[in-house]
Amino acid sequence: MTTPVRVAALVGSVRTGSVNRRLAEALRDRAPEGVEVEIVDGLADLPFYDDDVDAAGAPEAVQRVRERIAAADRVLFVTPEYNGRMPAVLANVIDWASRPYAAGAIKDKPFAVVGASFGRYGGVWAHDEARKSAVIAGGLVVEKGLSATPTTPDLSGDDQLVADALAVLTELVENAPEVAAA
Score class of each variant (00 low, 15 high):
residue 124 V to E: 09
residue 109 K to R: 08
residue 99 R to V: 12
residue 127 H to F: 03
residue 87 P to K: 04
residue 48 F to S: 14
residue 125 W to H: 15
residue 44 A to S: 13
residue 83 N to H: 06
residue 77 F to R: 07
residue 157 G to A: 05
residue 51 D to L: 13
residue 82 Y to A: 06
residue 135 V to M: 14
residue 134 A to K: 01
residue 105 A to Q: 09
residue 123 G to L: 04
residue 78 V to R: 06
residue 101 Y to F: 15
residue 56 A to N: 13
residue 69 I to L: 11
residue 107 K to W: 13
residue 33 E to S: 11
residue 38 E to D: 05
residue 103 A to G: 12
residue 89 V to C: 10
residue 125 W to E: 09
residue 102 A to M: 15
residue 98 S to E: 04
residue 84 G to N: 01
residue 155 L to D: 06
residue 66 R to Q: 13
residue 33 E to G: 05
residue 64 R to I: 13
residue 33 E to I: 00
residue 129 E to I: 08
residue 35 V to F: 01
residue 136 I to C: 09
residue 79 T to P: 04
residue 111 F to M: 10
residue 157 G to P: 00
residue 151 T to W: 10
residue 105 A to Y: 09
residue 93 V to F: 08
residue 28 R to S: 12
residue 82 Y to C: 02
residue 54 D to N: 12
residue 103 A to D: 15
residue 123 G to D: 08
residue 99 R to C: 08
residue 159 D to Y: 02
residue 122 G to L: 10
residue 146 L to R: 10
residue 39 I to H: 01
residue 35 V to G: 04
residue 136 I to G: 11
residue 105 A to T: 09
residue 120 R to F: 13
residue 94 I to G: 05
residue 81 E to S: 02
residue 51 D to S: 15
residue 73 D to C: 07
residue 145 G to R: 08
residue 41 D to F: 03
